[in-house]
Simulated scan of single mutants.
Amino acid sequence: METQNYKNHKKFYPPHHFIYLPVLILLEILGVYKIFDDSSHQLTWILFSIVIFLLFYLAIMLRQHYALGLQNRLVRLEFKQRYFEIFGRRSDEIEEKLKFDQIAALRFTYDDEFKELLYQALHENISGDKIKKSIKNWHPDLHRI
């Protein structure tokens, strides 16, 4: 497996991203084309296009909503645990001062950089993306959904 870093840390689910969604897009294009091409069955093609659009919309929204919601909760729990392990105290006050993108970005750091980048996030309010770009020794997250 390739070493994880800023450029390759996003994850795709091939059946969803490269088969199911492209097929729905092609069917939607076909349906819209047929609305104008086949006037004798125009209502049928309009309904077909609406159904395909709804399937496409639901596939994207439900998959993302459930996976991201759960993943966000786990990222926050990992931050709390890690903060406690490093500093020996609860992170509630610190966590309230950080935006989620900052907390999420800090998970890609090892402990030595975690302290430095956490300080910058708190005092300089650097973004999650800037935190990721500042990481010198990337700690991969190989268990993402």
Rank of each mutant, 00 (worst) to 15 (best):
Y83V: 02
K7A: 11
S39R: 05
H41C: 08
V32Y: 05
V32A: 06
I103Y: 01
K130P: 03
I60K: 05
S39F: 13
F114C: 13
I29P: 06
K133A: 11
E124I: 11
L142H: 10
R90L: 10
L24A: 06
Q71N: 06
E113M: 10
W45G: 03
G69I: 03
D129Y: 12
Y57W: 07
A59N: 11
L117T: 09
F12N: 10
A67F: 08
E2P: 15
R63N: 12
P22I: 09
W45A: 05
G69T: 06
D37K: 03
F53L: 08
P15A: 04
I25S: 05
T44I: 04
I35N: 00
T44S: 05
L98E: 00
R73V: 07
D111K: 15
Q4I: 09
P14N: 06
A67Y: 05
Y57F: 12
I29L: 14
R89L: 09
S91C: 04
P140N: 15
E113P: 01
W45P: 00
S91N: 00
K132R: 09
I126K: 10
I131C: 11
N137W: 10
S127E: 08
A105P: 03
L24T: 02
A105L: 05
R82V: 01
K80S: 07
K10N: 13
E85C: 13
F48Q: 05
L118R: 03
I60D: 04
D101I: 14
D38E: 08
E124N: 12
K99N: 12
P14I: 01
V32D: 02
F84Q: 12
Y66W: 12
H16P: 00
I60E: 04
I126L: 15
I50Y: 06
E28K: 00
N72G: 05
K11A: 15
A59V: 07
Y6H: 15
K11R: 10
S134H: 12
F36P: 03
G128N: 08
N125T: 12
L62R: 12
A105Y: 00
R73C: 07
R90F: 09
F87R: 07
P15Y: 02
K97G: 13
Y13F: 09
I46W: 01
I103G: 03
E116L: 14
L54C: 15
F18R: 00
L30F: 11
L54G: 04
K10S: 13
L26M: 14
L58R: 13
R107Y: 01
A67H: 07
V51M: 11
K80G: 03
S39C: 08
I131M: 09
R144M: 08
Y66C: 14
F36T: 07
K7Q: 15
E116W: 04
M1E: 07
I25Y: 02
I126W: 14
S127D: 06
N72F: 04
Q4N: 10
I52K: 00
Y13V: 14
L26C: 11
D37C: 02
S49M: 03
P22G: 05
L47T: 00
F36K: 07
